[in-house]
Structures are given as structure tokens and as C-alpha cells.
Design a protein around this nucleic acid. Structure first.
Lengths: 251, 251
DNA sequence: AATGCAATGCGTTAATATGACGCAATGTAC
DNA sequence: GTACATTGCGTCATATTAACGCATTGCATT
């Protein structure tokens, strides 16, 4: 979060940062990419600063790429957080010394920060979590088992999930989170995990196929217990079209 | 936009501003509160800066109150705009001199700004548009007749309306925009104006009353041509409840 | 190889919601 | 009094949703 963009504070938009809630889906679980600082083992969302000559969306893309190695993925701004107390006393003098921040830059870090929240949907298998500072750890954490996060990052995460939940009613989800070939039950699990409730299997199938974004493959999933489910892929063109025009019906 | 908050740039969050899209409803038209600068007759959204010791939401409330005299009204953050070029070359040296900005503050105004967009729904009759700088004009403009706005304010306005349109499917609207007593046809006009399309009169009545947020008054609108429509008011408690829990159905 | 079992895939039905109208009642204007 | 635009309530066909039945599949066990 620090070094990722640290060159000289003068090059950065003062008092403004970006935090990303990066969602992945694996083992039928919705996961979030979190960072554990080497300094005090505290957990946080991946974030960074914005160059003065950089669009905020571009800065968000950079952060995402720096942390997952991925670009061109689903990334959406959802809210900006700007309570006065949100980062009060976050950077202690000790911590800034630990991160090697020179004295003349200290004031910059200690000033009041507003952060712009983005959430991303990424393919768990393709993302390669990348550390940035020594001693740091970057990990996928089940969204139900997120530890206490620094500052208001917990609140930011909650809002991201709430937004995703709402937007599930307005757009299709899955293209960015699932592998190329997937089964309907897998897609259903994804929806259920995001929504936090179960859906009827048979109604889900009917509804999701009626959208017209799925292509049924002439292939079944192998090496599974019980009846092998059919494999599907997304029809990218139709998917994009529905993404743009929006769904008419919710879940 | 300038003087509203101008005391000393050091007291303000640098590079960050707030712009408000204030919607009102009158004469069956959706209106937007706009400001015409005395300097060059350019139109803009009402906006302002954020004190370093002020929550961004609080700053938005202040701006709204400064421009309408209203507080405790519906105000919602919808997006943050941060393209590098969005305010490039906006404040010419001439304009800053016109506004009486001292030389040492010029750099602050010329730096790159990110702006947080809020939209508000206010009661047209209760709002009292207030100017802030000499020569300035504050006016309600029909949302279909908005003139060219400065910077990316046109884009901000469009996004606000788009957001309102989407949120109409998730929450009830009207309590903040209509007078205490109103008719169903008036409420319908409001919905139609926001959505930009007509709705069937009879179906609208059925749907809006089924939500359970309306109280039918034992009173009819007077001084109207043709059959006098019944007056209604919102059931505040139920309205708030639905606002919180969300609608299940859209329009 | 036969059987059990858990999960899949497709179908049915009742309840509910939606969209498109019909029509009588109302209150002003002439 | 009559015309007329508008309101308020109702009807009906169709679409959508929710809840569930049941045969099929293919691995696991025996």
C-alpha cells in the first residue's frame, strides 16, 4: 500500500487514496484479496495513491494489476469514504520509520485522507497475488472469515459486497469470476454466496439460461462424484450486451 | 462555489471538491438547481470544498443548505469523478483575480481536482435558492433544458439522473420531492419524468398503492379542471422502512 | 455386476405480478 | 343541462415466480 506508489509525495494527489475490494471465487467460496503488513501483522485492503497526472480509474487499474498481475478485468468504483476520523492516528511515527518514509514526507502521510473504493471481480486461478513490501503477505480470505481490518476497511468491504449484491439484480455476474468452462451448479453457488441465501436449483437453471448469455458445451465435467454436470461457457457478446443494457429482473 | 467555503486554502482538503445535483419537482417538471457565474455567465452545478476537519457527507450537507436553506433532506453520494483533464485550465488567472483569490492561493485552485458527486431530492417550494458571489445567479432549470455546463458537470448531472433512475427500482421516491399533500397523478408525473417514459395510469395506481407507503386523505384537490383528484400523503414510517429494506419490484 | 445414493436436468402447477384495456363517476366549462 | 377531460376502480389475458415431482446419471459400495 505504501511502496506500491511511493516515489515522492509531491507526485501524488494529496489526501486521496484508492482501496480495492478484490473478489475471487474458488472452492465454492467467495474470497477477498487481503494484505497483511509485515510491520504489525494488521490486515488491510490492497490500496494505493493516485498520481497527479493519472485518472482515478487508471490508478485503480494499476493497483489491481500490481496485486494480481491482471488487467482488463471487471473493476467498478462504488463509493468514496471520507469521515474525518477514518485514518486518524493510523500512521504512527514508528510505522512510518519502519516503512522508510523520510521525515519530510511524514506530514503527507499523517494528513487527513479520503479514499475511493473500487471493487473488482477476478478469476481466482489467473490472479497471482503479489507482495509489495518486505514481510508483507497477500492472501485470499473467505469473505465470511475476514479478520479485523485496519481503519474503516471493514466498512469498505461490507459496502462493496452490498453493492455487488444490489448490482447482481442489474447485471450478470460470473464471467469475471469463473473459469472459462463451468457448470450451472457452480454458477449457482456463486450467486448464492454473493446473495447470502440459497436459491432453488431448478428455478435458477431456468432463469439463468433464459437470459441468453450461456452456451451449453457438448462436454461434461469429469472426475466428480455423482451425476456429471454439463459444462457451459459464457457467450461473451451477449454477456457484454446484457451488461450494458442491464437485466430487467432481479433475484 | 468559491466563496462558499473560501477562507484559507490550508483549511481545506486539497485537490478535492464536492458537486451537488439538486433535483426539485414543480409544474410537473423535474428541475435542477444550477448556478450562473457573474464572471463569464457560465453555468455550473453548486459545489464547494471540504474542510480538513469535516466529513465529506457533512460538507455536502453544508453545500446543500447554503444553496437551498434546507437541511435534513435526501442526499446521496453517487460517484467520484477524477479524470486528470476534468478541471484542466478551468481557473484562468483572470477568473481567479475576478473572484479575489490572493496570489498565494492560486496554485491551490490550479491544481488537479477530484470531485465527489452527490445528488439531492428537495421540495421545490421549500427551497430558497441562495447566491454566494456577487453577480451570481441561482436558478431552477428544467432537466431537459440544461445549458452547457462547465468542466464535466454535464457528465456529472447525467450520471446523477441515471443513478436516480436506477434507484427508483430499489427505493420509493417522492417524499422529498413533493409537497406534503399530493395526488396520484402528480406522483405518477414525477415517476414518468425521472424514467423518461409514460406509465399506464391505472397500473401505476395499483402498484404504488400496493407498496403501502401512501395514506389516502379524506380530501380532494381543489381548483382543478375536470374531476378533482384525491389527495394523499406519505406514511413516513412505512416509507422509511421501505427505503431501508428496498423495493422488490422495479418499474 | 448389481444396487444405493446424491446430484443433475427437465417438467408441472398454483400463486402472483404485469400489461393492456373498459367503463362509470366526477367536476369544470360552455 | 351537456360536453368533455380526467379520475378511480375493475377485468382479463399473459408473463413471471415460487414450490415441488420425478426420471436420469454416474460414482461408490458391496
Amino acid at each position: 500500500m505504501l511502496k506500491t506508489h511511493l516515489k515522492n509525495s509531491k507526485e501524488y494527489q494529496p489526501g486521496l487514496s484508492i482501496d480495492c475490494v478484490i473478489f475471487g471465487f474458488d472452492d465454492n467460496q467467495l474470497k477477498v484479496l487481503l494484505i497483511k503488513t509485515g510491520y504489525d501483522d494488521s490486515w488491510s485492503l490492497p490500496g494505493g495513491f493516485i498520481s497527479v497526472d493519472e485518472d482515478i480509474d487508471t490508478a485503480a487499474v494499476s493497483i489491481l494489476q500490481a496485486r494480481t498481475g491482471l488487467k482488463g478485468i471487471f473493476l467498478r468504483q462504488f463509493s468514496t469514504f471520507g469521515k474525518v476520523k477514518r485514518n486518524q492516528d493510523h500512521f504512527s511515527s514508528d510505522s512510518l520509520a519502519y516503512f522508510g518514509i523520510p521525515p519530510e514526507e511524514v506530514k503527507w502521510y499523517k494528513s487527513r485522507f479520503v479514499t475511493i473504493g473500487y471493487y473488482a471481480l477476478v478469476n481466482f486461478l489467473k490472479a497471482i497475488p503479489q507482495t509489495d513490501n518486505p514481510g508483507e503477505m497477500v492472501e485470499w480470505v473467505d469473505h465470511n472469515e475476514v479478520p479485523k481490518l485496519i481503519l474503516d476497511h471493514g466498512e469498505i468491504l461490507d459496502k462493496a459486497l452490498e453493492t455487488l449484491r444490489t448490482e447482481l439484480n442489474l447485471m450478470p455476474v460470473g464471467y469475471n469470476l469463473l473459469p472459462e468452462k463451468f457448470t450451472i451448479p457452480e454458477l449457482q453457488k456463486l450467486y448464492e454466496t454473493i446473495l447470502g441465501r440459497t436459491l432453488d436449483r431448478r428455478n435458477f437453471l431456468r432463469k439463468i439460461t433464459s437470459i441468453g448469455i450461456l452456451t451449453k458445451l457438448d462436454e461434461k465435467k469429469s472426475n466428480v462424484a455423482h451425476k456429471a454436470p454439463n459444462l457451459y461457457s459464457f457467450d461473451k457478446d451477449k454477456y457484454e450486451e446484457v451488461l450494458k443494457n442491464g437485466l430487467t429482473q432481479g433475484w
